[in-house]
Structure formats: structure tokens, C-alpha cells
Amino acid sequence: MIQLSNILAKYPGGEGLELVNLTVGPGEFVYLVGPSGAGKSSVLKVICLDIFPQSGHVIVNGYNSLTIKKKRIPYLRRKLGIIFQDFKLLPDRNVFDNVAFALQVTGTGRHDIKRKVLRFLAEVGLSHKRNKMSYQLSGGEQQRVAIARALVNEPIVLLADEPTGNLDPESAEDIMQLLEKINAKGTAILMATHDYRLVRHPRRKIVRIEKGKTL
């Protein structure tokens, strides 16, 4: 489903990814673990093709970085959901509109938007706060909105970049439980974190990354 083979993706300053190999299969929960600056976020950016690898290749749901046309990249991204440490919600819109936004940009009809947004807000437990502005919510709630937005296009994999990094332990625990629930329903998850304590199921796949290299 997702396969990164011998990825080299350096930034002009010399930092970036040097040798990354990683696979995420259907329904898997994969932890990408490493210290700050190891290249975890860059791996997620390479998967989204926000950064193009200089060598090696990425395959996401049949799209290959070596052959994909730039015009097709948005369609690849529709198969991915992504959440960040800083939530990246739009402060001038309410909860409903923040989630609806992901559907509007893909050209979904108004009726479908309403139905899907309400369904995914219910899934993250925020139906009752749909009319609140994003800044009126707690950190944990904002991350839930971000998760609903990431899921509303029904991606094959959810990419989570330090999703609990800005949250208190209690909210972090809630978010982790929510991610477990989502994974149990069949959505694969690739979660980048520097916090080894979050890796709660030792039997799950753990990929370590250091100085731009997967170990």
C-alpha cells in the first residue's frame, strides 16, 4: 500500500533523508520513532509527495513517484489523511466548516458533505460542538477535529505527525485511543513520534529513524 525504497531526499542545507526504507500494509499501525530532527516529518512529506525524493521511489496505492504526473498528485493525497502536532485548523471557520473544507476542495456535493461531516464528527465525538469556532475548543478537541477532517475523505492510511505533541497526558491518551479505534475499523496508521512511551503495543511494527536513516 505504501512503500518507500532507498529514499534520498536532501534539503539545500544538507539535512533531510539519506536512506529510508519503509512499508505500511493495509490496516497496519506503524510507529515511526526517532529523536527530533531525525527526519520523521520529512518521511511523511515524501509520502504526500510534498517533497520529491532525489533517488529511490515511493509507491502509494499504486501511484509511483518515478512515473506520477504532477497533475495526479492531488488524487494521491486524497487517499491519505494527515494530522499534525499543531492541528492546522482554519481559525476563521467553525468545526463543521473545517471538516467540510476537505470535501469542498475535492468537489463533493453539498448534500454528501453534510452527511459525511456529521458522520465523522460523531465518530470523533464532537457532533455537539459542530458550530463552535476552532479556537473555542481545547487542544484535544482541536486534534479530534483535525482527525475528522483527515478521515472524511476516507483515506487508506492516516499519517499522524506527533499528534499528541501539544496535548496534556489525558488528552494525549484520548487521542491515542481514538487512533486505535480508527485503526480497528480498518484504516492503516503511520504515526511519527519521538515519544517511545506512546508505543503501547510492542508487537506492532516500529520503524526507527535516526539522522535521516531508517534502522
Binding site: D50, P74, V105, R149
Partner: peptide
Amino acid sequence: STIIEIMKLVGATRRFI
């Protein structure tokens, strides 16, 4: 830039953005 970044990430086409 945030809204553009989000648009890109949720799969908006270049033309749409």
C-alpha cells in the same frame, strides 16, 4: 500559507487552489 498547505494536503488540485 496555512490554508494553502491544508488545501494541498487534503488533495485540492492546483487549479482549485
